[in-house]
Design a protein around this nucleic acid. Structure first.
Length: 752
DNA sequence: ACCTCAAACATTTTT
DNA sequence: TGTTTGAGGT
């Protein structure tokens, strides 16, 4: 039992045995981070710490599950199941359900996923008669999410002038109204979105001292994985929870922080020192995962980032083979290169499909790769894209279930009230919505008491509405005494969804029907493996599940295709990183700023360090994008890699991308391979000036022709000053990004 | 109220 | 390029 300590190196062992007090573990890629976390939990248990008082937070369900399994195998299931271990979102939703009444939510509140949230925002924009081109749903939702993650509620929004100004400039003057309405509608629907789960947990701990004390005393030991990717609210919650015992252990790697777009702050790691001055820290720097070549290549890349905690990742592993960098003519060539290489290595090294991963920056890149793999008959699986639970037919069934548990759930209601068709169309829904808003109640309440409210819905339609209400009531009556599987199956059949799909014999219809059966099987599984098996119990966490959480057995031995973000925490013997082109990786959307660039570089770092044995990098000079062919240049990151570990190859296909249709021709058309024939662009580091610490000059004296420095856009020249004194605008030409108009009041410029 | 077709639109990453 | 939205007809 004690021999687990023997499996650790000195640093790992120190981190495991250091039980009390604040502890920071900086764990380089492949340094056995998960091992330290699991052994530390086991060590706590062996030192008579009750599993109930251990809180372990991870970033994904998968990570939590994996860790739980490892702990199971050492201390047994009956101990490990009492651990509070899971993602931030799942643990906090568990707490919130117990304390919901304090925040005016019912225990069975709904969790809105991103699609629900989007649909709600879309309908608010419509109700307010706003221009949907100015108020883009994706922008609004990201903005609301960012505000929530920084703990700025809709009524606090106006206290932040810079936010108000940004929206003013973008002509989104009604943003606050949308935000406010969104929050109210969520509350009225008894629904929380992902961000609310965090925000409301913080509110709970902040506004209810008894609740705070309860959880502070309960969680005597707190462990947090992937700490570099926690956002501000998460940071605040953890700080509060840990305040009593200060037995907090954070594990992370600043070089792998890749979620700042979602509000993650590397700063949180640095804050740790000031929040817990008597903290202890260990660095895990020995890599057990990759060959020396891969480790050194990754190091050569990441050293281009200025903003990082110094560390030296090293390995005792063998040197390994050189990294292959391949130039391809097109995205299709790239796909075929990858497929051919996999085919060859499988033969040479006796490798299995599951040993390979293909990583890319954006989900859209998977198409060419899939096609090539299919042609080579290589089995593959794709993560990302549409999750199982986001599929239409699944959401339909789940929406009926949601509605049964929480009839105020507006998004679920809108989804199923007329599916299958019941003759309740848009017009009726609009009328209901207006009545609901006028009386500040939910649509369900209006439908429930149609006679009590003023509306002009005719008798025929009213009757249909009443029928629908009765249908849902019938389901509700069975919530208490029937298990989840029975009720879900009953719902699928009696709602008409099952029949509707059964009659659809098109391939899509058949697959939808099968998906629903798969869902029902999943629910059956759930019922058989738990004591609490009501529909409400099943529905609790469904919104928090993702694709990766229900991997099918038959998918086990397949090549993995995924985005680099999704690959975090995973490892594969053979890794292909594709699409290494400017404007794709680094992404076009990541601005010109040093910070954005460094995040993209960390992302590439994560990609490289997934590989155990061999790494293949590739880029295309021509790529199909937005319905047309675009010329591409190799990624600037490629020229940052130490060339001594890289072997360059070029693949020339005689065919043009456009005429790539003739199968036979393609198969016969063997690639021509050339070595070391192409040059990468010069190292671009100098081009992007390091502009993090610009001085904010007094801009009252600004004049035409002055040269200025902007933190994001770099060097520029003032072309014109316009506007009245209070809202002076400057038109500036920036060398790197072209002409921009900035409001001087808020622009951070240095006059040079 | 529902169906059909054409035009517009969209691609960063996710719990 | 594939998907979604909206107009117009039934």
């Amino acid at each position: 039992m004690q021999d687990y300590l023997e499996k650790l190196n000195p640093e790992q062992r120190q981190a495991v045995e250091h039980i009390t007090g604040p502890l920071m573990v900086i764990a380089g890629a492949g340094s056995g981070k998960t091992r330290v976390l699991t052994y530390r939990i086991i060590h706590l248990i062996n030192n008579n710490v009750s599993p109930f008082s251990i809180l372990a937070l991870t970033f994904t369900n998968k990570a939590a599950k994996e860790m739980r399994n490892r702990i199971d195998s050492i201390v047994g299931k009956n101990i490990s199941r009492d651990l509070w271990m899971g993602t931030f979102h799942s643990i906090f939703s568990r707490i919130l359900r117990m304390e919901a009444h304090k925040l005016n939510y019912p225990t069975n509140f709904t969790i809105y996923d991103t699609d629900d949230a989007k649909s709600l925002i879309r309908s608010i924009i419509k109700e307010l008669n706003l221009d949907k081109d100015i108020y883009k749903v994706s922008i609004i939702i990201n903005r609301i999410s960012a505000l929530k993650n920084n703990f700025i509620t809709h009524d606090q929004y106006s206290n932040h002038q810079e936010l108000v100004q940004t929206d003013k400039i973008a002509k989104r003057t009604e943003f606050q109204r949308i935000y406010a309405m969104y929050s109210q509608r969520c509350l009225k629907a008894s629904a929380m979105d992902f961000d609310d789960l965090l925000l409301n947990t913080y509110k709970l701990l902040n506004n209810f001292p008894d609740a705070l004390l309860k959880y502070q005393s309960k969680f005597k030991y707190i462990l947090i994985d992937e700490y570099q990717d926690t956002n501000h609210v998460q940071y605040l919650i953890i700080k509060k929870l840990a305040a009593l015992h200060e037995n907090i252990c954070i594990v992370g790697d600043d070089a792998q922080s890749i979620y700042s777009f979602r509000g993650a702050k590397i700063q949180n790691i640095l804050n740790f020192k000031s929040d817990y001055p008597d903290f202890k820290s260990y660095k895990l720097e020995q890599n057990y995962r990759s060959t020396n070549t891969i480790v050194e290549t990754a190091n050569s890349l990441i050293k281009h980032n200025e903003n990082q905690i110094p560390k030296e990742v090293w390995t005792e592993n063998e040197k390994g083979e050189k990294i292959i960098l391949c130039k391809c003519g097109s995205d299709n060539d790239e796909g075929r290169l990858v497929a051919n290489t996999i085919f060859e290595i499988k033969m040479q090294d006796q490798a299995y499909p599951k040993d390979f991963a293909i990583l890319y920056r954006t989900n859209a890149q998977s198409r060419a790769l899939e096609e090539a793999l299919r042609k080579q008959n290589i089995p593959y699986k794709i993560y990302g894209g549409l999750s199982f639970y986001q599929r239409k037919e699944i959401k339909d069934i789940l929406s009926y279930c949601r509605l049964t548990i929480n009839p105020n759930d507006e998004e679920a209601l809108k989804r199923v009230i007329n599916y299958p068709g019941r003759g309740i169309g848009n017009t009726t829904m609009q009328k209901l919505l207006v009545t609901a808003n006028e009386n500040n109640i939910s649509i369900w309440e209006v439908m429930n008491n149609l006679n009590n409210y003023k509306h002009n819905i005719n008798n025929g339609t009213s009757k249909k509405l009443v029928e629908f209400v009765l249908l849902i009531r019938n389901y509700q009556a069975q919530l208490e005494n029937k298990d989840a599987y029975f009720l879900a199956e009953h719902i699928a059949k009696s709602s008409g969804v099952f029949g509707d799909l059964y009659n659809d014999k098109s391939p899509e219809g058949v697959s939808r029907f099968e998906n629903i059966q798969e869902l029902l099987n999943g629910i059956k599984d759930f019922c058989e493996n738990t004591e609490v098996n009501s529909l409400a119990d099943y529905m609790k966490d469904v919104a928090l599940l993702t694709n990766q959480d229900n991997e099918k057995q038959e998918d086990f031995n397949k090549v993995t295709l995924m985005t680099i973000h999704a690959a975090k925490g995973l490892e594969f013997p053979y890794v292909f990183v594709v699409g290494l082109e400017q404007n794709l990786f680094p992404s076009m959307m990541s601005g010109e700023s040093q910070e954005d660039l460094e995040e993209e570089r960390r992302l590439f770092y994560v990609a490289i360090t997934r590989a155990e044995k061999r790494l293949f990098l590739s880029f295309a000079t021509n790529r199909f994008k937005w319905g047309q062919y675009i010329d591409c240049e190799p990624s600037r990151f490629l020229s940052e890699l130490n060339t001594q570990y890289i072997s360059k190859t070029e693949i020339i296909s005689k065919q043009k991308n456009k005429f790539y249709n003739n199968k036979k021709q393609v198969l016969k058309n063997k690639f021509e391979k050339k070595n070391n024939t192409f040059k990468l662009p010069p190292n671009l580091k100098k081009l992007s000036t390091v502009t993090k610490n610009i001085k904010h000059s007094d801009l009252s004296k600004i004049q035409n022709g002055m040269k200025v420095l902007h933190s994001k856009f770099g060097n520029g020249k003032i072309l014109e000053i316009s506007g009245d004194e209070a809202n002076k605008k400057a038109t500036i030409f920036f060398e790197n990004v072209g002409q921009k108009q900035l409001l001087l009041k808020f622009a951070k410029l240095e006059i040079i």
